[in-house]
Each structure stands twice: as C-alpha cells, then as structure tokens.
C-alpha cells in the first residue's frame, strides 16, 4: 500500500486565506453588505424556526390549549405531564434502541456502499458504465408506495418479518446517494490525484480510502445525516413488517398514541419533540464536516 500523494499545492490552507483576502477588497461596502446579509439570513432563520418553536410550545400545552382560539404562542406548563404520558404509554427505551440500531446501520451502510459506487462512476471508465448509471437514475423514478404487499410477501418468505434487518438491508445502498456523491466527486476529486495514485500502483480500494473518502467528507456527512433521518422517521414499512410489540421503532410506537376519536395532542407533540431531539444532535455533529477544509485530514499523510 503506497501512500497517496499530497494534493497539488493549492488548498492546504487556501480557504482561510481566501476569505481573509477577499474581504479587504470590498472594504467600503463590507459593513452595509454584512448587515444586509445578516438581515436576509435572519429572516430566513426566523421563518425556519417558527414552526419548530410552535411544536415546542404545543408539547408544553394541553390539547385544549393547542386548539384554543386565538392560538397560544407562549409556553404552557404541561410539558412534564405530557412527557410522562408518553413514557407511560410507550416503551421509549426499547423503541429508541431499535431505532438507533436501524438508523445507524442504514446510515453507515449507505455512506459506505454509495460512496464506493459513486467513486467508481465518477472517476473511472468501464464497459457498461453509462447503461448502468442510467438504470440507476431510472430506479429513482420508480414509484415505491405500491410495493408494500410484494415486499411484505418477500420478507415473510425469507423469514425476516418482525426483524430489524428487514428495515436495514433493502436500503443499504441507494440510487439517491450514489447520484449525489458521484456529482460531488466529479467536482471535488482532482483527476491528477487519482492518476498519481494509479502511477504509484494503488488499487481501486486503496485510492477510494485514501483519496475519495477524505475529499467527499461534506457529501458523506450530508448523506449520512439524511439517511439517518429518513430511517428514523420511516413509518409505513416498519408498521407493516414489524409484528411484535417489543420490536417497535420510535415512529410506530409514537403513532400508536393516536386514537380513533380523541387524541391527546399535547402528548403526541411531546412525543414528536422527543423523537426529534436526537436528530438535531446528529445534525450538529455531522454538519461540522460541511466546513471541513478539503485539504485537511487523511491526505496529508
């Protein structure tokens, strides 16, 4: 295994210096520009946060307060009670464990398999590549909602009904992520790097690990986060395929809080909030990689 060559000398600390360098250039306008920029961003931020804020408010309210008129936009004092109701009705620990396993496994597998395929598609030629790629894109257009019955039959035949792998394996690689990472790789992995790795005698998988993975960090982080979220929030398929109360995901458990006539919305909102908090954590951790300097990390070695 030969070490991949360093990046061409442009980017090692390029980002920071670029920023520092650009700003003086716009000195005169920069203050006004900055204020305008912040103002625009702030408006967007307020609009984005507002419904989430309302969700938090609702999780602290009774059903009566939620549907009151005019709507109440300040915190109520039923949060503890709502959470207690959720915890009493749902085996949170069990559901949370199952969901973390499913979402984590999905995210890791998708990140690995998709980036591998994306790197091959973006930077190499091989017979049948175009046809295979078009096929891949076409599968994204295939309608999914009608596959419940045949998928269920498939799972019951291979004995996977009621198991977590029924939620993990079918989605372990997806067209969406391969397409995304291929597009990212097209722009961010310099051919020179791949070429020099080849000259050094590095094989495909070595090149992938040494060059593609570090350079695709932002894209991988994005894919991982949103695969995690999608698996976390998936409802209908887990509902169909999980048949034991001890094998529930958070979503199937929380949906059980809805009742036929009278639903306790304060409790439902508290449940929704509880299920969302870990996702925000995952995002905060994962999104650091969006600003990771492309020259950083593994490549230097």
């Amino acid at each position: 295994m030969t070490a991949a060559p360093p990046l061409p000398r442009t980017t090692a600390s390029g980002r920071k210096s670029t920023r520092r360098a650009i700003s003086p250039h716009y000195g005169a306008r920069s203050l006004v520009a900055k204020i305008v920029v912040h103002l625009c961003v702030l408006i967007g931020v307020v609009l984005s946060i507002f419904p989430f804020y309302w969700l938090v408010v609702m999780s602290t309210s009774t059903t009566a307060e939620i549907f009151g008129y005019p709507p109440k936009l300040t915190f109520g004092d039923s949060f503890v009670e709502n959470v207690r109701n959720v915890v009493q009705s749902v085996d949170m620990l069990q559901a949370l464990t199952n969901t973390v396993i499913v979402s984590g496994a999905c995210a890791l597998l998708v990140m690995f398999f998709d980036s591998l395929a994306a790197f091959a598609f973006a930077k190499f030629d091989f017979p049948g590549k175009n046809v295979l790629f078009v096929l891949l894109i076409a599968t994204m257009l295939v309608p999914g909602s009608l596959s419940l019955v045949p998928s269920f039959i498939l799972m019951s035949q291979i004995g996977w009904v009621g198991t977590l792998q029924a939620l993990i394996v079918p989605g372990a690689a997806n067209a969406f992520g391969i397409f995304l990472l291929r597009q990212m790789a097209a722009g961010s992995i310099p051919d020179e790097l791949v070429e020099s790795a080849r000259i050094d005698g590095a094989g495909f998988f070595t090149t992938y690990w040494r060059i593609a993975v570090p350079l695709l960090r932002g894209g991988l982080a994005f894919l991982g986060i949103f695969t995690f979220i999608a698996a976390w929030n998936d409802y209908v398929w887990p509902l169909i395929v999980l048949v034991n109360p001890e094998r529930q995901t958070l979503q199937t458990a929380l949906q059980n809080l809805n009742s036929l006539y009278l639903t306790d919305y304060g409790m439902v909102m508290a449940g929704a909030l509880i299920s969302v908090v870990p996702l925000i954590g995952v995002f905060i951790i994962g999104s650091r990689h969006f600003i990771a300097n492309i020259a950083a990390g593994a490549i230097k070695g």
Binding site: L148, V149, F152, I153, S156, V161, G162, Y235, V236, L239, I240, V243, P245, T252, L254, Q255, N256, L257, N258
Partner: peptide
C-alpha cells in the same frame, strides 16, 4: 389475548397481512 396497538394506517396493515397470507 395479546393486544397489539396498531396506530394509523390500520387498514393498510390488515390488508397487507391478509394479502400476504402471513402474520
């Protein structure tokens, strides 16, 4: 009796199991 709560999409779940002749 083991009573399992099925939340929303009750009909879809019931039909799927009947169509699949399983569970």
């Amino acid at each position: 009796v083991r009573a399992d709560v099925i939340g929303t999409n009750f009909d879809t779940k019931l039909r799927t199991s009947l169509a699949g002749k399983a569970y």
